[in-house]
Design a protein around this nucleic acid. Structure first.
Lengths: 213, 213
DNA sequence: GTATTGGTCGATACACCGTATCGAGCGAGG
DNA sequence: CCTCGCTCGATACGGTGTATCGACCAATAC
């Protein structure tokens, strides 16, 4: 018995499994096995698997804190920190936004953001924070989804095009999507960093207009 | 035998089940049972359950089409239509952004948006569409999540506060979240429609600034 | 010191899931 | 009419989350 069981140890183990092999590798049986314990032991510390997932999400929120001065830098750093957390824990992208989050670390993160917003009036600050959070949730989800798709069809972009190329080529060849075809051919090819930052800048610019007025 | 089995009939049935009882009510066994068929029959039409979910998502995308003139109205209507679709199919919020979407209806929706963006240069139009999509994904997820939370703890807001009030009151009473407490007390209380529209306007304003310049 | 009781803990069991397998049943060819 | 071959779906497998309840052990009563 290396250490007494605890909520925290259970959650840490579950996160380790999820980091290594994805969310579907997190089952109560596997977590229990990794802790050298019978599955039902866990129910002394957590009520349900959903609660474990909530705890995992809240734990990751401990890694997310805004930094910098001024509302704009605060919101940008919040967004960037969330994105980085999702890079460290890809399963985070699957869970984020999917359940109400009232855990201590999540609340602490919200507290830090609100506090750091400085003198911005609440009627603008609250919707602004909400909008940034919404954007980040969607952007991170899409980015992680794309990353996984690329990884699953071989490792690099060449193989990806080889795998989906035929299908896309065929559907584009039908001529039903001329505008999309143009985008693929002539459109900008931004890397994920740029894509994320560009969208975030749109949003922050729009918020800035509402604040300075 | 009322009608021959088909991909479309299977997907429609799955959507009906999901609309009625949520995503967890969609199992291959239940879909098959609703069609008066053995579970394995479905594998003649779909390869895997994930493919069925992808088909469900693509089918909903058929309900999402941009309308109106000018890039701003196009993007706003796209966002609003997506939100409405998620209201009709709450499970859509669980799936959106979670898998690569290359189905015909999804592509058609993308085609319509790109085509309707009019003269906007691709270097702005593409990131703008991406940003709006990201925002919508996150905003819709959060909205549906909240709606479910309220519904699960009794039907109305009073009961919700009664259920979570004690916990929140207690954690706010610790004084660890003074800024959040202020928000709850003095902050704006927007309804979901306003919240969605406000965030979307931030984003569209930011895009407008980049376009007109 | 021993008998009894109370409570805790975890092995077992249940209902359900996605899907691989393979034997039964049937249509076609000789 | 028989036989072959193929298709299709019942059965089965390995997994899931979690309810149940019997075994075990510590503490109490005599």
């Amino acid at each position: 018995m290396p250490a007494p069981l605890s909520r925290e140890r259970i959650v840490r183990t579950a996160i380790r499994l999820a980091d290594a092999d994805g969310l579907e590798a997190v089952s109560l049986r596997k977590v229990a096995a990794a802790l050298d314990v019978g599955p039902m032991r866990l129910y002394g510390y957590i009520a349900t698997k959903d609660e474990l997932l909530d705890l995992m999400v809240d734990t990751v929120h401990a890694e997310i804190r805004p930094t910098g001065d001024g509302w704009r830098e605060v919101l940008r750093s919040l967004a960037e920190a969330t994105r980085q957390a999702a890079h460290r824990h890809e399963w985070f992208a699957d869970l984020i936004g999917g359940r109400p989050q009232l855990g201590p670390h999540t609340l602490a993160s919200g507290e830090a953001v609100v506090a750091a917003m400085g003198g911005v009036a609440l009627d603008v600050a609250v919707p602004a924070i909400g909008a940034v959070n919404a954007y980040v949730i969607g952007a991170v989800r899409r980015e992680i989804t794309e990353r996984r798709a690329e990884r699953s069809t071989g490792m690099d972009k060449a193989q990806w095009q080889a795998a989906f190329g035929p299908y896309l080529q065929r559907t584009f060849a039908t001529g039903r999507f001329p505008a999309l075809a143009t985008v693929v051919r002539d459109g900008p090819h931004l890397d994920p960093d740029e894509t994320f930052r560009t969208g975030l800048d749109f949003l922050l610019d729009g918020i800035a207009a509402r604040i300075s007025t």
